[in-house]
Design a protein around this nucleic acid. Structure first.
Lengths: 340, 340
DNA sequence: TTGTATGCGTTATCAC
DNA sequence: GTGATAACGCATACAA
C-alpha cells in the first residue's frame, strides 16, 4: 500500500486527485468531497471550507468524471438526442439546451442519430446510454416509445416526460390556420425530398390534415420537394395537376423547401399569392431577405426548449427555474410575408 | 464483504458486470476482459473464448465507460469542438466525423463552443476535457493555440495535428479566383453581421485579401451583412459608396449572406452580374433553387473531414484507413450560377 | 466536526 | 492458458 501524499504538491505529471487537495488542506478526502460538492457544508468550520477551496483552486483540481460516475452509478452527463432531420436553426436549440443543462451541473453530450437507426437493441444510442450511464436523456424527437421505455428501464429518465404539446403539432396548425385565413381552402404539405426519415415533417403534415378535417376543408395534398430547380418545378407541377385549379395553399417543411416552391411556382407562371400561397417554417431570417419576402413560422429556439428546464428541475430537484414556460403561441408565430 | 455471484444470472435491476459474465462462463474477470477486448485472444482456448462471448451476449453485457476510464486513465470518447459560427450544412460534417470516430472504437462527444469563450483557464471546454479525460479532441476551428497546447499538455492529443491547409483558406481563394476570372477586379468580403466571432470568416477574408495582393488587385473591402432586407440594403449601399464605381465582386461568408446581398443589390437597382458579382459558399442547394441561381462554393462535408480519419489512424494506430485524403480542390469547387 | 473503510467495474501485473 | 490481486478516483456509511 503506497503512502498517499499527506502534504506538499503532487508529483508533476500525475493528475491532481482529491487526496492531493486533502493533503494540501490538511483534511481528509471525505471533507474535500463534501465541501466541493456542497453536501454538508454547514457542518464544517468555515475556515476549513476555505482551506479546502483554496487548495483545490491552487492545485487546479477538477473531479474525475470516471471516479465519480463509478462511485455514484451514473455520470453527470445528459445525452441530447438529435433526430435525423435537416434542421436549419439547429445550433440555437443546442445552445439553449446546453445552457439549461449546465445550469443544473450537468454536461450536455449531443448525440446525432443516423438514418433508419431504430430499435435493434444495439443501436448507437442504446450503446452510448448503457456505456455512459448518463443522468438523463433529452429527446428532441425521433425516439421510439420502445427505445424510451428501454432507456427508462435500464438507466435513467427520458426528458421531457410529459410530452408537452409537440411543437410540430403547433407548427402545422399555425401554417394551416394562416393559409386558411388568407383564403386558401385546398391545402398541401411539402416535405423535403431527402433521404432523412423526418419525424418532424410527419407530425406537421398530420397536424395540417387534422386542421383541414376540423374545418371541413378538403384533405390536404402531399408533395416531396427536392432543393433544386428542376425537381422542385416537377414536384409543384405534378401537384397542380392533382388539384381542381383552385388556389392552393402550400405549407412547407422548412424555409428551404418554401423557397424552392416559391421559385418553382414562379417559373410555372403562377403569381403569389394570387394563384397560390406558400408558408415556410423555422423563421430563418433568410426568407425575409429575399424577394418576394417569404411568409414563415418564426420560432424562438430558446423558448422552444424552455420546458426541458422544468423537466430537469423536477427530475433533479435543482434550483426551481424562475418564470413560466412560455406557451406555445408565444414560442411560434406567423411572420407574414408576400407569399400568402 | 458480499459474495459475488459465481454462477447464475445476476440479480435483476443490478447492471450486468464483467464478474457476472465471468461467473456464467466459468472463468475469471481477467479472461473476460482479455477476450472482450481482443487483447491476447490467441492464448486462450477457443472454447473458452466462445463461452465468454456467449455469456456476454446472453447477459447483454456492455462495458462500463466509468470503470474503463478509471482503470485506463482516459475514456473512449473523442470530443469534437464546434466553433461558435453559424454553419448551414453543419450536421453533415458531424455525421461524417462521428462515422470516422466510431470506426476507431471511440464515441464522439460534440461540444459547441459559446460566444467569446476563450482561455480563461476555466472555460466550459477545458472543464469538459479535464473531467472527461477523452482519448482525443478534434478541432473544427476556433481553438486558440494556447488552449490546444493546454489540452495536449494535460491530457490528450488534439487533431488534426498537422493543420492541413485550412479549408477556409481554400474557400476564400476559390471565391476570389472565380470573381477575378469573371472580370471583377475590386473585391469585397461580406461577413455575417451577427454576434458570433466567426473564426471561419476571418480566415476566408484574409485569404481573399492574400489573393488580391498576389494578383495586384486593390485591397478588398469589407462589409457586415445582416440577414434582413433593410440592413442588408444599407450594408450594400454603404459598400457602393466606398468604391469608385467599378464592378464589384462580393465574396460572401455563406449562402445566406449571399442571398441577402443579391436581393439587396437588386433593390438598389444593380443588375447581376453586369454591375456586380456575388458568390456564396457552403453549397446549400438552396441558392440553386431560387432565381437568380446563386454562384457558390460547393463543399463535400464528408470529404472535408476525411483527413481527420488519417489523424485518428496515425494517433491511435487503428486500421490504417484506405484511400487517399481527397485534395482540397476535389472537396470544394465553384458551382457557377447567374450571379457572377 | 473529522477520519476510516469499503465498494463501484475495469485493466494491468504477476504468480501459477 | 488461466486466475488472483492491486490500483484507478470518488462517494458514503459508519466509527470516533
Amino acid at each position: 500500500m503506497s503512502i498517499s501524499p499527506q502534504s506538499g504538491r503532487p508529483a508533476r505529471g500525475r493528475r491532481v486527485t482529491s487526496a492531493d487537495v486533502a493533503g494540501l488542506a490538511g483534511v481528509s478526502r471525505t471533507t474535500v468531497s463534501d465541501v466541493l460538492n456542497g453536501q454538508r457544508i454547514a457542518r464544517y468550520h468555515p475556515a476549513t471550507v476555505q482551506r479546502v477551496r483554496g487548495a483545490a483552486a491552487e492545485l487546479g483540481y477538477v473531479r474525475s468524471a470516471a471516479g465519480r460516475a463509478l462511485a455514484m452509478g451514473r455520470s453527470d452527463f445528459i445525452v441530447v438526442v438529435v433526430p435525423y432531420v435537416t434542421y436549419m436553426r439547429f445550433q440555437d436549440v443546442i445552445e439553449a439546451l446546453s445552457g439549461h443543462i449546465e445550469e443544473f451541473g450537468f454536461s450536455a453530450v449531443v448525440h446525432f442519430r443516423g438514418p433508419k437507426e431504430e430499435d435493434g437493441g444495439t443501436s448507437r444510442l442504446l450503446t452510448l446510454v448503457e456505456t455512459l450511464r448518463p443522468a438523463g436523456v433529452v429527446d428532441l424527437g425521433g425516439l421510439t416509445p420502445k427505445e424510451a421505455a428501454f432507456i427508462e428501464k435500464t438507466c435513467c429518465s427520458v426528458l421531457p416526460q410529459d410530452k408537452p404539446a409537440d411543437p410540430n403539432v403547433w407548427i402545422g396548425l399555425l401554417q394551416a390556420e394562416h393559409l386558411h385565413s388568407r383564403g386558401f381552402r385546398q391545402l398541401a404539405y411539402a416535405f423535403l425530398s431527402d433521404a432523412r426519415d423526418d419525424p418532424y415533417g410527419q407530425t406537421r403534415a398530420a397536424s395540417v390534415a387534422d386542421y383541414c378535417e376540423a374545418e371541413g376543408l378538403p384533405v390536404p395534398l402531399r408533395l416531396h420537394v427536392p432543393i433544386e430547380p428542376e425537381g422542385a418545378r416537377e414536384a409543384v407541377r405534378s401537384l397542380l395537376e392533382r388539384t381542381d385549379g383552385g388556389r392552393l395553399g402550400i405549407a412547407c417543411h422548412n424555409d428551404e423547401v418554401a423557397i424552392a416552391v416559391v421559385f418553382a411556382a414562379q417559373r410555372l407562371g403562377l403569381e403569389l399569392p394570387r394563384d397560390a400561397g406558400v408558408i415556410g417554417v423555422e423563421g430563418g431570417d433568410l426568407g425575409q431577405a429575399m424577394a418576394p419576402r417569404l411568409t414563415t413560422v418564426l420560432g424562438d429556439a430558446a423558448a422552444a426548449v424552455h420546458h426541458v428546464r422544468f423537466s430537469l428541475g423536477r427530475t433533479y430537484g435543482g434550483p426551481v427555474p424562475t418564470g413560466e414556460t412560455p406557451p406555445l403561441d408565444q414560442v411560434f408565430r406567423v411572420l407574414p410575408g408576400e407569399t400568402t
